[in-house]
């Protein structure tokens, strides 16, 4: 734990915490505009979280400590995971922080507890959501790992911080294969954040819902924490995509001007990706649950091909 790393940790986590709700509202805004509605303001997610924090929390009488612990676990895992993906400044990795697999599994703990809390209240909706979420997570996992393997092969490193250090300051991705990896990462982003066509974040209709059903029994401050954790997770995945496709702007030397510039740049880059996500969602219809594996297998095909092309050609 050296000085630069602590600065990085504070800077990165603080920035992620600050900016995550913005992208959430931005996507909503884009979707609303695409549907011809005006849509919520850009600060709506901040207001929602603040409102939820002030509300009382309702627990089911059937629920146990699992329900009470889950929101804290989700939020802290998201915050710890925020140390793994550099947004502004990239230090030398310390103690293996930045390891891609560890990152994936940190998000996994949050999902594990969330799925348990879905079962905890004894409601059938929670069970449905939990079962579907874990099944989908299982089916997409090979794709995630193979994409990360492709990333590791291309970037010759297993650590996001190292990958970022190698590519920082470059205008274009390190290699053309990165664009292909970017496409796969985009699909993973869509699946992990539960967006159309995999899941619909807007509806609470029991037939379509996956993620929303799982958190149906959460309320008040707990719901606020879970929503916040979701927003952070989304920002981190966007940041990985940015890292792969648009590495320009990351600084490797600490300076106030550089960091400020990187912040501004990240907001722009993140907004671009958020707009793309919003448009993508608007142009799609929700898929039937059991036709999702087909989509995933095409994503898997894609990432395998990426490695294949990178390795063989």
């Amino acid at each position: 734990m050296n000085g630069p790393f602590i600065i990085f940790a504070l800077l990165n986590v603080g920035f992620v915490l600050l900016i995550s709700p913005l992208f959430m509202s931005l996507i909503k805004k884009v979707k609303a505009r695409a549907q011809g509605r005006c849509g919520p303001g850009l600060f709506q997610t901040y207001y929602t979280i603040a409102k939820l924090l002030r509300k009382e929390t309702v627990y089911s009488s059937a629920s146990s400590w699992v329900m009470r612990v889950t929101p804290y676990v989700c939020l802290s895992m998201a915050v710890v995971a925020a140390l793994f993906v550099p947004l502004l400044y990239v230090p030398e990795p310390v103690a293996g922080i930045g390891n891609v697999i560890l990152f994936l599994y940190l998000l996994g703990i949050a999902r594990f507890f969330m799925a348990l809390s879905g079962l905890d209240a004894g409601s059938a909706f929670g069970g449905i959501g939990s079962s579907r979420e874990m099944s989908l997570a299982a089916v997409i996992e090979p794709t995630s790992i193979v994409v990360l393997a492709a990333l590791a092969v291309v970037a010759r490193s297993l650590n996001f911080l190292e990958i970022a250090r190698d590519s920082a300051g470059m205008l274009f991705p390190v290699s053309a294969t990165m664009i292909l990896i970017g496409v796969s990462l985009f699909i993973i982003l869509i699946v992990e954040t539960g967006r159309i066509p995999v899941d619909n974040p807007e509806t609470h209709l029991e037939l379509t819902m996956v993620h929303e059903a799982m958190v149906l029994e959460q309320s008040g401050r707990n719901l606020a924490m879970i929503e916040y954790a979701g927003a952070i997770k989304q920002t981190l995945l966007i940041a990985i995509l940015v890292l792969v496709l648009m590495p320009f702007g990351l600084v490797t030397e600490l300076s106030v001007a550089g960091v400020l510039f990187a912040m501004a740049l990240f907001v722009v880059k993140g907004s671009v990706i958020s707009v793309i996500i919003g448009l993508f969602e608007s142009s799609m219809a929700k898929m039937r649950l059991f036709s999702l594996p087909n989509l995933f297998i095409i994503a898997f095909f894609f990432s395998v091909l990426t490695i294949f092309i990178e390795v063989f050609a």
Binding site: I179, L180, F301, L305, T306
Partner: peptide
């Protein structure tokens, strides 16, 4: 080179 690779993958997709 990158462009060609991209096309190859896209064709297979």
């Amino acid at each position: 080179d990158g462009l060609v690779r991209f096309i190859f993958v896209a064709v297979l997709i």
